[in-house]
Computed example of a mutant assay.
Amino acid sequence: MKVKGNRAALLTACRTAAEGESLSAYESEERTRGRTVRRRVETYAPPGRLPTGWPPTGRVIRVERSGTRDGRAYRREGFYLTSRADDAEALAGVIRAHWLVENRLHWCKDAVMNEDRGRVRDGAGAAILSLLRGLALSLLRHAGFASPTDAFARLANRVPELLRLLKT
């Protein structure tokens, strides 16, 4: 679970845990879409005391991302809590897998399909519309489209082709 600023006591506990010696560390670097990203993932023993109501924790994970984006340097630090006691490399893979889902599904639903601008915000209607958007993205990927934007451009005003796609 990512620890965010709205949980100040929990974030402070994670930062305090990360002041100690790390149990394991893993580094990676990648270059994509005109940017370079370096990640350093470190695991730490859980803090002695967590804020009231938090279940037992196996590891505190500190992720430092740095690199260049649009020619500008940046550095970000984030903390995660997990019940797992894996090493930093394994936990780095878990975190990357989570963000893959976030980027391939939620970002597409928001940025490409404008889900956040929808007027239906709660109840069954919102859940059904979200499900239909996810289904549409899955169908487009299954049909071989690399991106939803490419699919929308190709299928715009091509109803017979769209219907063939739905029948597969």
Results as ranks from 00 to 15, higher is better:
residue 143 A to I: 01
residue 87 D to F: 07
residue 54 W to R: 05
residue 115 E to K: 14
residue 16 T to Q: 13
residue 153 A to V: 01
residue 74 Y to T: 03
residue 125 G to F: 01
residue 46 P to H: 06
residue 167 K to Y: 13
residue 35 R to D: 00
residue 90 A to C: 06
residue 142 H to F: 14
residue 129 L to Y: 14
residue 45 A to N: 12
residue 97 A to P: 04
residue 135 L to D: 04
residue 78 G to C: 02
residue 35 R to C: 01
residue 33 R to Q: 10
residue 135 L to K: 09
residue 85 A to H: 11
residue 50 L to A: 12
residue 147 S to F: 04
residue 125 G to V: 00
residue 90 A to M: 10
residue 3 V to N: 09
residue 133 R to Y: 01
residue 62 R to Y: 13
residue 161 E to L: 12
residue 141 R to M: 02
residue 35 R to I: 00
residue 14 C to K: 00
residue 155 L to H: 05
residue 99 W to L: 05
residue 54 W to I: 11
residue 63 V to S: 02
residue 113 M to K: 02
residue 69 R to K: 07
residue 164 R to A: 15
residue 121 R to L: 05
residue 109 K to Q: 10
residue 70 D to E: 13
residue 71 G to C: 00
residue 34 G to E: 02
residue 133 R to S: 03
residue 119 R to S: 10
residue 132 L to T: 07
residue 51 P to Y: 09
residue 46 P to L: 03
residue 73 A to Y: 02
residue 19 E to L: 09
residue 27 E to Y: 11
residue 127 A to H: 12
residue 120 V to W: 02
residue 20 G to R: 06
residue 63 V to M: 03
residue 91 L to M: 09
residue 53 G to L: 00
residue 164 R to E: 12
residue 39 R to S: 15
residue 36 T to L: 06
residue 82 T to F: 01
residue 71 G to Y: 01
residue 30 E to A: 03
residue 43 T to Q: 05
residue 117 R to I: 02
residue 38 R to K: 12
residue 6 N to P: 02
residue 5 G to A: 13
residue 42 E to M: 10
residue 68 T to D: 07
residue 97 A to W: 06
residue 127 A to E: 13
residue 18 A to W: 06
residue 72 R to N: 08
residue 93 G to I: 03
residue 97 A to H: 12
residue 25 A to F: 03
residue 116 D to Y: 00
residue 48 G to M: 04
residue 69 R to W: 04
residue 126 A to W: 02
residue 118 G to N: 01
residue 48 G to A: 15
residue 112 V to D: 12
residue 50 L to Y: 10
residue 153 A to C: 02
residue 10 L to V: 14
residue 136 A to M: 12
residue 30 E to F: 00
residue 66 S to P: 03
residue 106 H to Y: 00
residue 117 R to M: 09
residue 119 R to E: 14
residue 72 R to T: 04
residue 35 R to T: 00
residue 162 L to R: 08
residue 43 T to S: 09
residue 81 L to Q: 09
residue 61 I to A: 13
residue 37 V to N: 14
residue 152 F to D: 01
residue 142 H to W: 14
residue 1 M to G: 15
residue 129 L to N: 15
residue 131 L to R: 14
residue 112 V to Y: 14
residue 10 L to F: 14
residue 65 R to S: 14
residue 14 C to Q: 00
residue 11 L to I: 05
residue 89 E to V: 05
residue 11 L to F: 04
residue 117 R to E: 10
residue 47 P to D: 09
residue 49 R to C: 07
residue 85 A to T: 13
residue 7 R to N: 08
residue 138 S to N: 15
residue 113 M to W: 01
residue 107 W to L: 06
residue 83 S to H: 07
residue 11 L to Y: 03
residue 34 G to P: 01
residue 77 E to L: 06
residue 47 P to R: 10
residue 119 R to D: 10
residue 15 R to Q: 08
residue 54 W to C: 06
residue 24 S to K: 11
residue 105 L to M: 13
residue 8 A to P: 07
residue 2 K to R: 11
residue 101 V to G: 08
residue 31 R to Q: 10
residue 88 A to W: 09
residue 105 L to E: 11
residue 160 P to W: 04
residue 57 T to C: 08
residue 168 T to Q: 07
residue 45 A to V: 09
residue 80 Y to P: 01
residue 27 E to V: 11
residue 152 F to L: 09
residue 118 G to R: 03
residue 104 R to F: 05
residue 7 R to S: 07
residue 100 L to A: 15
